[in-house]
Amino acid sequence: MQYWRRMSSETSATWRSALRSLREPGRERDVLVQSMKAAGAAVLAWMITGWWWGGSVTLMAPWAAVALVQVTVYRSVVSAAQQFTVIALGAVVASMAAAFTGSTTMAMVIVLPVTVLLGTWTRFGTQGIYASTTAVLVLAYGSTSFADVGHRLLETLIGALIGISVNALVLPPVYVRDVHTHLDRLAQETASLLRAIGAGVDRGYGRVDAERWHDCARRLHGSLTALRDARGWTKESYRFNPGYRLRRRGPALPPSELDAAWESVVHHLMSLTRLLADTVGDAPSLRLPPADALEPLGEVLRHAADASAPLPRQSIPAEGDDPRSQRADSLSEAWQAHAKLKAWVRIEDQEEATSLGGVVAQTQQLLYTLAPSGAWD
């Protein structure tokens, strides 16, 4: 039963992804477009080398074409160079081994360890596996003469050129949407965490609550990594892309300074949640701040959550409903609450003042990071 439930869940998820690819732009549609381009490139390569050129075994051309419709045009070009190199090495080494041994089996025994090891060289990237597979195909089909090897390399070259051309000229991929998606997700996760901490310090929190907040803050690093990866893919998609300036690209790419700002926000959140965790438990290393001081702390965090929430990307905001103005108001209220929190640092209990001073410092740095600047616009 568990197996069938899992199969049903996977089928439903696949069906939803297929529907999303048809209904709206997104990752699913990007995958669909690239898949159709790869299939079309393979068919075109097969037709040119098999039907027009009249080749008897036209395996290498469609193979190269379908493999080289990569996620970016730049990646197609780099992969083409890597693939052609490893295929040439595999074919030549297999041909030489066959000529030397006169036996297909002995040639495989000699060639495969060499080509498999050669394919692990990092310079070849994911294309390294083609060294050994090409050697197997050359030996299995008996295409070991230098004329046959040259024919196969020419097929590979034709397929590579077709794959690159299709990827570059037919809806060349440009990834801008992913950066916005990851920024919005990071903002939503940060705002949710700040609200959770604000609610927790208001009602009173324990070690389990604080550790959960700290784990959530650490997981924000995964969102930061995804954001950096998305920005890298976006920049790479601009390279060697002839259609970049012709395609409708949607909203402009956010400035890279925003990534650094979010990294600072996550850093201060991790420090704050670690400090709060150290004030509770069986043997806390810091004294819990006074309950009256936690009230303005909760207020600071709730207003900071409103300020860090993602801004809607709308062209003309409704009158009196400018999200940037609302964000500035939230920060102003957060600073007012922070002033009340800072006043508690002058308490006489030195242990409470120590822990409260750390909370004040981290929240102050957090608010400074969230302060309006060019990066946040």
Rank of each mutant, 00 (worst) to 15 (best):
Gln2Asn: 15
Ser8Leu: 14
Gly26Pro: 03
Ala42His: 04
Leu59Ala: 03
Ala65Thr: 06
Ala67Lys: 07
Leu68Ile: 09
Gln70Val: 06
Phe84Trp: 00
Phe84Pro: 00
Val86Gly: 02
Val92Pro: 05
Ser95Ala: 13
Ala99Pro: 10
Ala99Lys: 04
Phe100Trp: 13
Gly102Leu: 08
Thr104Trp: 03
Val109Leu: 06
Leu112Met: 15
Leu117Ile: 05
Leu118Met: 07
Gly119His: 06
Thr120Trp: 10
Trp121Asp: 07
Thr122Trp: 00
Arg123Thr: 03
Thr126Met: 01
Gly128Met: 04
Tyr130Met: 07
Ser132Met: 08
Ala147Trp: 01
Arg152Ser: 11
Ala160Leu: 08
Gly163Asn: 03
Gly163Gln: 02
Ile164Ala: 01
Val166Glu: 00
Val166Ala: 00
Pro172Cys: 10
Asp184Ser: 10
Ala187Cys: 08
Glu189His: 10
Arg195Gly: 06
Ala196Met: 09
Tyr205Asn: 02
Trp213Met: 03
His214Ala: 12
His221Cys: 05
Gly232Ile: 04
Tyr244Asn: 04
Arg248Leu: 15
Arg249Gln: 13
Gly250Lys: 04
Pro251Trp: 03
Ala260Thr: 13
His267Phe: 10
Leu276Asn: 13
Ala277Trp: 07
Gly281Met: 00
Pro284Asn: 07
Pro284Gln: 09
Pro284Phe: 08
Arg287Pro: 00
Leu288Gly: 09
Ala304Val: 01
Pro310Arg: 10
Ser315Gln: 07
Pro317Tyr: 05
Glu319Ser: 09
Asp321Pro: 01
Ser330Thr: 06
Ala334Phe: 14
Ala339Glu: 12
Ala339Asp: 14
Leu341Asp: 11
Ala343Asn: 10
Ala343Asp: 12
Trp344Lys: 03
Glu348Cys: 12
Glu351Gly: 08
Thr354Lys: 11
Gly357Lys: 02
Gly357Asn: 04
Val360Gly: 03
Thr369Cys: 12
Pro372Asn: 05
Pro372Cys: 03
Gly374Ile: 08
